[in-house]
Design a protein around this nucleic acid. Structure first.
Lengths: 193, 193
DNA sequence: GTAGTAAGTCAACAGGTGATGACAACCCGG
DNA sequence: CCGGGTTGTCATCACCTGTTGACTTACTAC
């Protein structure tokens, strides 16, 4: 069963964007190693060779996915403000406030590929630069790096949990309690050691 | 440079054990997908074909690694007793009490391969049976599953953190404070919602 | 000592991977 | 109408993976 291509309009920018979107989708559901260029190309409705042409290599494509500007903006937005509003936003994200779906996806993309030989150093660098560093800089008091890492561990744990088992909250009341609990967790993580 | 085999003593049990140990070591440092049977065989000083012979397939080998009886015993031992002693043991493990090195490694093996298409369902099942289920059963009060998952998220986050950035504690004093912090985190995770 | 079986070795396979370079179709300025 | 560069297609390469089956070596029972 071979798809008959409806002749793709010749538009390099749109094609690149389609590839990037397809890659994003795949990398959010599998690791760097399990996702193949051919699947991505199929999702994008594009010949696999075009990926190499436009992005160079698979590694470069992954790097491009990691450094999408919107993603960076969103993650940066997570980590500003005082601890209370930050706790609010982290809880929102973890409990899947619709606005934050893409942020969760961004974390997922990174966490999925953290055990890959090729991709792990990119992931580490991105997490460090986008998360650990700004949070550390934001914190007053001693042991800032450690407290930032505690927050990182919290977020990572919750996101992996969600992908393993699905959402925690079943009804609105539970969700409210969980929201409060996660805010407490954030405050505890960031509080003075 | 080809190793000249010092003729391996013909002992099927010892060979199987060597393969299992080598596989354990590799899977603790890479994912199911990045680790190759040839590397494992080389570590064990064994011909790659023997792995298929003794364990059937790579998948079966991974399953064998996951279900090593000592591991199961150790992880089970983590999750018994009241919340205070449990918090103590979790903090010990996360802060690398030497006794718990292998337990940390066991979690690592599972987390490394959680994004693999082939291995993820095995990992999920193992985590559920060895961690979520016993903890849920141990808890009194409502929302037991959710609180157990919160503990799971905590452990997962800390272990991923450790493999990404290394140990949190630099000196004995920091270690003491962190130990107390993690105990608080465990209590908070498990406390009534 | 010799047959028979267990243990280990070797070479090769089929399948899938990312990547390349030659080709075809298209669009646009002249 | 027609060259020239862009955009997309196709076949193929070299490599690596897990797995298999035929072979050799060692050990044990008779």
């Amino acid at each position: 069963m071979v798809a008959i291509y409806p002749p793709r309009p010749r538009n390099a920018e749109a094609t690149k964007a389609a590839i990037l979107a397809a890659a994003r989708g795949r990398f959010a559901r599998g690791s760097y190693d399990t996702v193949g260029l051919r699947e991505i190309a199929a999702d994008a409705g594009v010949d696999p060779a075009l990926i190499s042409r436009y992005f160079g290599s698979k590694e470069d494509l992954f790097a491009a996915v990691l450094s999408r500007p919107e993603k960076i903006a969103r993650i940066n937005a997570l980590f500003v403000g005082d601890i209370d509003t930050l706790a609010e936003r982290v809880a929102d994200m973890i409990l899947d406030e619709p606005d934050d779906e893409t942020t969760v996806e961004d974390f997922l993309i990174m966490l999925n590929s953290i055990a890959s030989t090729t991709a792990s150093h990119m992931v580490r660098a991105t997490i460090f630069e986008r998360c650990d560093r700004p949070v550390t800089a934001m914190l007053e008091g001693g042991h800032a790096e450690i407290r930032a890492r505690l927050l990182g561990a919290l977020i990572v744990g919750h996101i992996m949990n969600k992908t393993m088992w699905g959402d925690l909250a079943e009804d609105a009341d539970t969700r409210r309690r969980l929201h409060a609990r996660i805010r407490e967790q954030v405050r505890l993580s960031l509080s003075e050691l």
